[in-house]
């Protein structure tokens, strides 16, 4: 195998960006048992906020990251309060239909608003070499930011009161209620945070890849696999699985074939479904 360090680095960068989308999706599933099909679209919307901030105002994506996250936080929280809250506790199919519909609406109106044109931000494209690993600065910055943001999420969940409320609601809603936690607020907050993290991922993607209205669904497909791999509802599991996914893509392409590589996560998924049905980090539903 040539350049294992480079492959490792590539896998980690991609994994870090996937993780930003995946932790949010898992968090949302955890607190409200809703699979949010529109989650990838939040990444897409965030990406466009960053893009237009760059195109119109000349703002660096590193600066527009914060407004993009703030806007998507409010959008996500509002959407949860007004629409998604209504299907909490209803059968999974109801929420799937609802969020699928939302996704279609967001995606279609984005096509009208932004056109299907591919776009991207050319920023920090110069490559740098370190320990024989070459990578453009935007990838490195993206990686570091993604780590900082997921780190911040973990600290938030672990140490702050609202974070604990989210964790409690996710782990056992009845007990959370019995503790006097306002689970509705926890859900709204978690949904907003998930949307904001997705927006951050979108911003980074606009810098390292390219963006288009349909991108949300493609990232959703990947992150959904990641979330199931990590254990539905487990944020730590999603993080680990995202990196596993990135590394499988990277090493699989180099060592096997680009045609086989995309199937590897599914092979892993099937293996895990057989040997550990609740996912890498999941607590099985029966335990809840």
């Amino acid at each position: 195998m040539d350049h294992p360090l480079q492959l490792l680095a590539n896998g980690l960068v991609v994994g870090a960006i996937y993780s930003l989308v995946a932790v949010g999706l898992s968090l949302v599933f955890g607190v409200m048992r809703v699979i949010n099909i529109a989650h990838g679209d939040f990444a897409m919307l965030g990406a466009y906020v960053a893009f237009f901030a760059w195109d119109w105002l000349g703002l660096s994506p590193l600066v527009s990251l914060l407004p993009a996250m703030a806007i998507l936080f409010l959008f996500g929280a509002g959407l949860q309060r007004l629409v998604i809250e209504r299907v909490v506790g209803r059968p999974l199919l109801a929420s799937l239909m609802l969020t699928f519909g939302l996704s279609l609406i967001i995606w279609n109106s984005s096509q009208v608003a932004f056109t299907t044109k591919l776009r991207g931000i050319s920023y920090l494209t110069e490559p740098v070499t370190f320990l024989g690993v070459t990578m453009s600065q935007s990838y490195i910055v993206g990686f570091v930011l993604a780590l900082i943001l997921t780190g911040a999420l973990f600290a938030f969940l672990k140490f702050t009161a609202p974070g604990k409320a989210i964790r409690a609601t996710s782990q056992n809603q009845d007990v959370a209620l019995a503790c006097g936690i306002d689970v509705r607020r926890a859900r709204t907050l978690a949904f907003g945070i998930g949307a904001a993290l997705a927006a951050a991922a979108g911003t980074l993607i606009s810098m390292t890849g390219f963006i288009y209205p349909y991108m949300g669904f493609e990232y959703l497909a990947k992150t959904f696999t990641i979330v199931v791999l990590g254990g539905l509802g487990s944020v730590a599991g999603a993080l680990v699985a995202a990196f596993a996914y990135g590394l499988l893509e990277s090493f699989g392409t180099a060592m096997l074939s680009p045609r086989i590589a995309p199937a590897l996560p599914f092979v892993l998924l099937i293996a895990i479904m057989i040997f550990r049905p609740s996912g890498l980090f999941g607590t099985s539903v029966a335990d809840r």
């Binding site: 964790r167 409690a168 782990q171 056992n172 009845d174 007990v175 959370a176 209620l177 019995a178 607590t283 335990d287 809840r288």
Partner: peptide
């Protein structure tokens, strides 16, 4: 105060 039915704990805490 309320103790719900069956495994009324936060598994990861």
């Amino acid at each position: 105060s309320f103790v719900p039915q069956g495994h009324a704990v936060f598994p990861d805490m």
